[in-house]
């Protein structure tokens, strides 16, 4: 059920990608996403595909595992494809009654679909290879300058990492409470919107109670371990760029340059 979603999960391995500094991966992912919108030609897609496949190979995350995560977004993709397919103007190539498919529509549907897949693949590859803690560490460090304008960067990143730690626990708990209420005859599936919303109360109230209890416990446990905010804290895994990180930056920038070049070339050629 809910637990089948692999997007956002961490996949333990010791690949070069896993060992990269999270800042490289964050900035790299950002550039990758931007790059997806800079071109509109077959060569562009090939370039991105080559880049992605290389990265996937380097990450040592099994393709099956990645593919499973993609299942969750199939609906979203179909939805997008549907709109592109039927609502893009252009030369009609196929028509039944008032439904018509245009050449542009087909092109858009296919390419937008591929772009979306690339986007999800690229960004989930980041979460597959980066522990949530590294991710928040990376974000904390990147956002550090914001500290000067009184943004509580450390607190935000601590909150994020705790949230990530507790999401699987709360999901499991949801499952358990749901079953317990079903054992008391609760019905979460039938009835209209109002009835269904009402039927969620026996699920949500215990869930909130439990979440607050956990938050309370956790706060106490953190204090007992001398947690007192970000000041004066040292890091077990401080972020320090290694040679491989500079190399990775170079690769990402090279990739980015190629895509931009392709984009410029396209405009001239076509």
């Amino acid at each position: 059920m809910i637990r089948d979603i692999t997007i956002g999960q961490y996949y333990p391995s010791d690949s070069i990608l896993h060992r990269l500094d999270p800042r490289v991966k964050l900035i790299g992912t950002f550039l990758f996403i931007v790059s997806l919108f800079l071109f509109d030609s077959l060569y562009g897609y090939i370039a991105v595909a080559v880049f992605l496949v290389t990265i996937i190979k380097l990450s040592k995350v099994p393709f099956r595992f990645i593919a499973k995560g993609m299942k969750a977004i199939v609906v979203l993709m179909l939805f997008m494809a549907f709109f592109n397919l039927f609502f893009t103007p252009g030369n009609t190539i196929f028509q039944i009654w008032i439904i018509k498919i245009t050449d542009n529509g087909l092109r858009q549907a296919i390419f937008m679909g591929i772009r979306l897949i690339f986007l999800i693949l690229g960004s989930s590859l980041m979460t597959f290879t980066t522990t949530p803690n590294q991710l928040t560490d990376g974000l904390e460090k990147i956002m550090k300058p914001l500290n000067r304008i009184k943004v509580p960067v450390h607190e935000i990143s601590m909150m994020m990492s705790i949230a990530l730690r507790f999401i699987p626990i709360l999901l499991e708990e949801t499952d358990k409470i749901m079953k317990a209420q079903m054992a008391r005859g609760a019905d979460f599936e039938s009835g209209g919107v109002l009835k269904r919303a009402k039927s969620l109360i026996p699920l949500l109230v215990p869930l909130f109670v439990s979440a607050f209890r956990r938050a309370n416990d956790l706060a106490m446990a953190m204090e007992a371990r001398c947690y007192r905010g970000g000041d004066g804290r040292t890091k077990m895994k401080p972020l320090r760029y290694q040679n491989r990180d500079y190399l990775a930056y170079t690769c990402v920038l090279a990739y980015f340059a190629i895509v931009i070049a392709l984009g410029i070339l396209e405009n001239r050629l076509f």
Binding site: Y10, T131, P132, N133, S161, I162, L164, R165, I169, R213, R214, D217, L218, A221, M222, R225, C226, Y227, R228, R233, T234, K235, M236, K237
Partner: peptide, 19 residues
């Protein structure tokens, strides 16, 4: 469950000394 802060065992053990 409610006293482990980090998502990796060793990082959790390091939490106290970090503080």
């Amino acid at each position: 469950d409610n006293q482990i802060i980090a998502t990796v065992v060793e990082e959790d053990v390091g939490f106290g000394p970090e503080n």
